[in-house]
Structure formats: C-alpha cells, structure tokens
Design a binder for these strands. Structure first.
Lengths: 149, 149
DNA sequence: TTTCCTGCAAAAGCTTTGCAAGTAC
DNA sequence: GTACTTGCAAAGCTTTTGCAGGAAA
C-alpha cells in the first residue's frame, strides 16, 4: 500500500520520533488521540476497522508498542488483566473502576491541583535512593461508580 | 481436610471479615503478608507449594479475590498484563519497572511525605464531581532501573 | 536496495468458570 | 444439615512471536 498524501503534520511527528510513516500508523494514531476513552488494543482495532479497511491485531500491538517507546502514547495498567492506551497530551489523574476495569480521566483542573501539590524534590530523592530513572507518575483513584438515585 | 489447630489470630482476622477459615486460606494469607515482593498469582502458587502440599491455581485466584473483596489485600495492575497482590498494611507508593513488570515498594518515609502532601479535600471534591466512591489512591512511579556503574 | 513493517496463524500467558466432591459452621 | 469452598479441567481473553511478503526511506 503506497502512501499517497500523508498529512505533513503527522508525518513530521513520526519523523521526529524516528518512526516510519505508514498508512496503518497514521490511522491508529489519529484514532488514539481523538478519544479520551483509554481504549484497549481490542477497542482500537474495532475503532480503526470502522473508519478504514482494517489492520491486524498484531499490527495494533506492534504499533502501540512503538508509539509507547517513542513517547507518543502511554500504556496504562488496567485492573482486569488488559492494557489500555492513552494518547495523553497533558498530565492528568485516572479513575479506575474496580468492577468494570474502565478508566476515566479526572477533570483537568482537579488533576492539576493534586499533581501540583506533589513536591518535585521528593521525586528526585526517590530516584537517587532507589537507583531508578522515572518516566512519569501515575496517580490512580481506585473505586467504583455510585449508582445514580 | 479438617482443621486441627488454627492460629486463633488468623481465625479471628478471617471471621471479622466474614471469611471462612480454611487450611488453604490460612497458608495463602501467611505467605502473602510475609513478603513485600508483590507476587503474581503464579508466584504465590509456587511459594505455597514450597511450604505445603499445595493448592490449585483456581483456589489461588478465588481466594485472592475473596481477600481483596474483604479488604485483606490489594490487587495491583502490572504493566505486562498480569496482576500482582499486596498484603499491604500501610499506605505506600509503588515503583513499576517498564521493562520487567516488577513492582517494588518506595521506602515508607518517602511514601509518607508524598502521600501527606495530597490534600484530602481535593479527593472528596473528586468523589462528588465524578459520582464515585473512592477505595484508595495508587501512586505509581513508572520508570526503569539504572544499570549500576 | 536495504531496512523496517505488516499480517497471518499459531502459541503463550493470565484468569475465569462449571461442576462434583468435600469442608466449615 | 446447609451453605460455602476446593480442585480439576476446560474455556476465554489478552498479548507475543515466527516468518514471508510488502512498503518506506
């Protein structure tokens, strides 16, 4: 499948991260950043299938792995054994539902309040003491929906 | 298998949480709280097998599920699709290794510093705004080990 | 033209489930 | 005696892998 007219924007995003610009990667990336639903690989596979001819599950996994390595998306650990992906552009908290495994964003302004309250110097102290390199912090609120009414 | 001489301490822990006191649950619980390694179900299965005749994987999963429901342990989401269990007695942060999926505790005094800095009122605001009931907060430091040297 | 990516199919890993026998209370 | 738990085996779901053909640079 030869590429005809890739949006130059996407093309340069990939180039900057050392990724080849394939049809499949473009479609997957567009779908990923267009949602805040933190889809599973399976859900992405179906979402892409609705827009386009489709691509294989293997490619979905390979591509997501490549995106994560390149820093284009985050891999989130869900509570029910599957993984979810987040085309995050800003830091935010996640709410994880213990019943469904669903992940929702915590509204941005509240997320910020909480994240801003974390002292930076504590983090660098942790890096030093534990001999690790931090990529990011995930703050997850674990709980369940209150049934309305 | 009839129970002969259950440690009354454990027995009352289970009773308080509405759990029947079976041989298997006792062994599994003892193994779980004796480690800070955040074992997977598979690892617990092997650890129990070393001490005792053994129990089936199905029972490991059933029992861990029962413990979690009862609040006797935490189910942690690992980054590689498996789940890990934590017989936690105090709040602490976790470091998750993106390469191995391993989970390590962040030392208690640093964990406390960070957790104490999170304003309580922000959490209750989140509960109200999102219509959820929080069980706990997981603060996960995502990163990788720095090779020594 | 070289290197990397895709897609298929198969395998591997983790977790859940149905059901009969057994145990706690 | 009743209700819950265990263990086996099988199934279900998620993710990874090997490899041949194809596309990007």
């Amino acid at each position: 499948m030869t590429q005809q007219r890739p949006p130059s924007e996407l093309r340069s995003v990939f180039a900057r991260h050392g990724l080849r610009c394939t049809q499949q990667r473009q479609v997957l990336y567009e779908v990923l950043v267009s949602t805040d639903r933190h889809p599973t690989a399976e859900q992405l596979y179906r979402m892409v299938g609705e827009r386009d001819s489709g691509l294989s599950m293997a490619t979905v996994y390979n591509t997501l792995e490549a995106f994560c390595e390149a820093g284009l998306c985050l891999k989130l650990a869900a509570l029910n054994g599957s993984c979810r992906y987040d085309g995050a552009t800003h830091d935010h908290l996640h709410f994880k539902d213990v019943r469904t495994g669903e992940i929702r964003d915590v509204p941005e302004e509240i997320s910020e309040m909480l994240l801003d309250s974390i002292p930076r110097e504590v983090l660098s102290e942790i890096e030093k003491k534990m001999g690790i390199k931090l990529h990011r912090i995930d703050v997850d609120l674990i709980g369940e929906d209150i049934p309305p009414g």
